[in-house]
Design a protein around this nucleic acid. Structure first.
Lengths: 342, 342
DNA sequence: TTGTAGGCGTTATCAC
DNA sequence: GTGATAACGCCTACAA
């Protein structure tokens, strides 16, 4: 039983393998200029000693920490958790670890989180959206940390963007409703404070409707946090204030689910009386009655592509600085043509 | 414009503040034996130089890395993402960072992830469940890394457990059904391979039914991955094979949602024809028709308590080595009394 | 209360 | 190809 009190260090491996620490280091870092037999001896010694390299020491001495950070609003929302899943699993394949922080949709909190990540020595940081404090970006630049914006196509000067165009998505929603004959539309948006994605969807929707000659000066828009109950309450208010609406675009499936629920509770038929369009294409869309039409956000893919950008050698990075993913319109049962004569 | 090429080091702060590096270190580490005015000078200098301490160097020199790891099956399942949310946010309050890895429900993968985390120098690791490879635990012990099991009450020798009793929860489900008069029950379980939680729920359910004198030698149990579609398909098969069932216990709300959907598609009335009980109390439970009765898993709280354990000083740890949280039965519309004469 | 000096475990730069 | 040697940035006895 080898119950050594202290864990094996690189030097211990060197001693056991009968070579210098430098050589062990070379083997461990896949340096090709090492003889086959010595390499094998080292590997054998390392295994027998249960040697595990010490990351912090490596990070201190070398320039690379193999550490990446991500700051998202919250993990309690599938759209972000799924993105992180894609990001983490792909990074993991390349032996890169991910540190996660949540900002609760507050860009001041986000800045503090960036500082924490800088302190950890991360090489790159994944952020959500393109609205950030100047401080935040300054810090990233000063420490020469690569950064990627997600859920947006708005790439920063030095960093990259992997995502989709929220404004365009909003416009797509407007066109979809207009083509179905809807002329009195409303929207339940996410909280737009500090949130370019939520704001972009509103802007796009408004712009799209306007392009069809509709008066959007008084477009009914209610903001609500991403909770089913909030969607329910928002829909209630929206319909009370604007009883003649025939279509409502929601900034998230969660809100749309709540809105749909309100309709069934209040005897409104979806989509006959009112059409409801969601956003994200979360798993829950197929649980409502009727199932939700929605705009699909490629969260998993976004995470993977952000990882690809981060893992790419600097030379290649330029080619993928801006990656726009399509937002597919998925039509299910919650949307339909506007009732005639309305 | 102070565009220094290199970032400020602790020594730079010392120079600017007119003191020694040791003193700066003391200030930064809240050592009380430093004069007020010197402390302020140091803090001022640090701010002006945009000084950010270098975590890896700290971790190398001191014994604490302020780094914690968590390995969960997947982030694409709200029950884990939410736990991580609770864990991360509480750790973050104490300036501890969290590295996340996913095992995809494979305990061999988990072992590799533990190795990665050891390499990162984490001080503690949060794991899910109590089924782990001996290797995994050995490594943790050897490196003297604290560990916490979650979603279980089965505490290991040296680590802790924060969670709930899956067997007991299964028994609760059995009692609930039995009290409602159900005598022919079935179950749609999660995949039990490498998954003590899924297995525990099955065992508890079976044991509970047996305690009422029911013959459970042929208890219909189908295993399915946590997907709505899988729940749908599993329910289809379950009902085809056992047309007389009056109650089905599902190992997850996701499966229950799929099962409920199948019932509405196939003309079975829930709960009149058949009762369905879920597990987790995910947000989605209120979207099905009828809404799902379920057993509530306190995911967020579990994450927070795991963090509390990790953050507690070793002396206090013993008192919270095993923390059992209640699993509340939440009755909504998907369960009811067994139809008479069946 | 403050400064000096040594070293944490690893890798980069030299020689050989 | 391989081995000394010197850092990387910081903390902590110890001395003053």
């Amino acid at each position: 039983m080898n119950l050594s009190l202290r864990t094996a260090k690189l030097k211990d491996v060197a001693d056991k393998a009968g070579c210098s620490p430098a050589t062990v280091s070379r083997v461990l870092n896949d340096n090709p200029f090492v003889d086959m037999d010595i390499r094998e001896r080292v590997l054998k010694a390392a295994t027998e000693l249960n040697y595990v390299p010490h990351g912090p020491a490596r990070a201190l001495r070398s320039t690379s920490s193999r550490l990446v950070g991500a700051i998202i609003p919250t993990l309690s929302h599938a759209i972000y958790a799924t993105m992180i899943d894609g990001l983490q699993s792909r990074l993991s394949e390349s032996k890169v670890s991910l540190i996660i922080n949540t900002s609760l949709y507050d860009i001041a909190v986000e800045r503090e989180q960036v500082r924490v990540l800088v302190e950890r020595g991360v090489e790159s940081i994944v952020l959500v959206g393109h609205w950030h404090l100047p401080d935040t970006i300054d810090m990233l630049e000063r420490y020469n940390i690569g950064y990627v914006f997600t859920y947006t196509t708005n790439a920063p000067q030095k960093g990259a963007a992997v995502g989709f165009d929220n404004v365009k998505a909003g416009t797509t929603a407007a066109k979809f409703f207009h083509d179905l004959g809807h002329r009195r539309c409303g929207m339940i948006a996410g909280i737009t404070l500090d949130n370019d994605r939520a704001q972009g969807r509103v802007d796009g929707f408004r712009r799209g409707l306007a392009s069809y000659g509709l008066d959007v000066s008084e477009l009914p828009v209610i903001e609500a946090p991403y909770k089913i109950d909030s969607g329910f309450a928002a829909m209630k208010k929206l319909m009370e204030d604007n009883p003649t609406l025939t279509a409502v675009f929601c900034g998230s499936d969660i809100l749309a689910a709540g809105a749909t629920k309100f309709c069934s509770h209040s005897g409104r038929k979806v989509p006959d009386d009112i059409s409801i369009l969601g956003f994200d294409n979360l798993e829950m869309v197929e649980l409502t009655t009727p199932e939700l039409s929605t705009l699909e956000v490629p969260a998993l893919e976004m995470g993977r592509l952000a990882a690809d950008y981060i893992l790419a050698p600097p030379v290649q990075r330029k080619h993928i600085r801006q990656r726009e993913l399509p937002v597919r319109l998925i039509i299910r049962g919650s949307t339909g043509p506007a009732a005639r004569g309305t």
